[in-house]
């Protein structure tokens, strides 16, 4: 009996200590990790989506708090007007979350481009969502206010062969982005207007 209690106590203490340490470290490094992702992953994706913008979308950004999730929005200026915004949403992929940067024109509500940012999909299959530019290019011009689906679910997106789950996840992330966009649109328009001053 004593041995049993000892086992439980030692394991519990060890696990609790480890959990506490990691939670602390995670909090401590969160800001720095966000900065790094902005530079190496999100940055290039944003630049690709908002290609040709006259401003620097990475520095022209703002945050909106929706519930307890804070999302960063990156503003792109075209023809002298701030009319495009890029932001990230997530979909459940084959192995873990897929981050998707979505660029939307706030006047026409149409997608100007998407880019997969972070993922842990299978190389050569699911990872093609990021590596094959043709897949992401399909989303261009879709209306963000309507659900986006793959062809065999009645949508317009040709799924990557061998990676149905990933393709659906990207569509779900884009649809999610649309829902968030519609919900936050009044706030968004207001904030973007500030960049026109």
């Amino acid at each position: 009996m004593r041995e049993l209690i000892k086992m439980v106590v030692v394991l519990t203490v060890l696990a609790a200590f480890s959990g506490g340490l990691l939670a602390g470290l995670r909090n401590g490094t969160a800001a720095q990790i966000e900065k790094q992702q902005l530079e190496f992953v999100k940055g290039p994706a944003i630049k690709k989506i908002l290609d040709g913008a006259s401003n620097d979308p990475i520095s022209d950004r703002f945050k909106i708090l929706d519930g307890d999730v804070e999302t960063s929005f990156f503003v792109g200026k075209f023809d002298g007007k701030a009319n495009t915004v890029a932001f990230e949403s997530f979909g459940k992929g084959y192995s873990g979350d897929i981050g998707l940067m979505v660029g939307v024109n706030i006047v026409t509500d149409k997608i100007v481009g998407i880019e997969v940012t972070t993922h842990s999909e299978t190389p050569g299959l699911g990872a093609m969502a990021k590596d094959d530019p043709g897949f992401a290019a399909q989303f261009k011009g879709f209306s963000i206010t309507e659900p986006i689906k793959v062809t065999n679910e009645g949508g317009q997106v040709n799924a990557i062969s061998g990676a149905t789950i990933t393709s659906r996840a990207v569509c779900a992330a884009a649809t999610d982005a649309g829902n968030m966009y519609q919900k936050l649109k009044p706030q968004l328009t207001e904030k973007i207007e500030e960049f026109n001053k």
Partner: peptide, 9 residues
């Protein structure tokens, strides 16, 4: 975590 924060590449 540390590598992600300081050696992202």
């Amino acid at each position: 975590l540390v590598m992600q924060a300081y050696a992202y590449r």
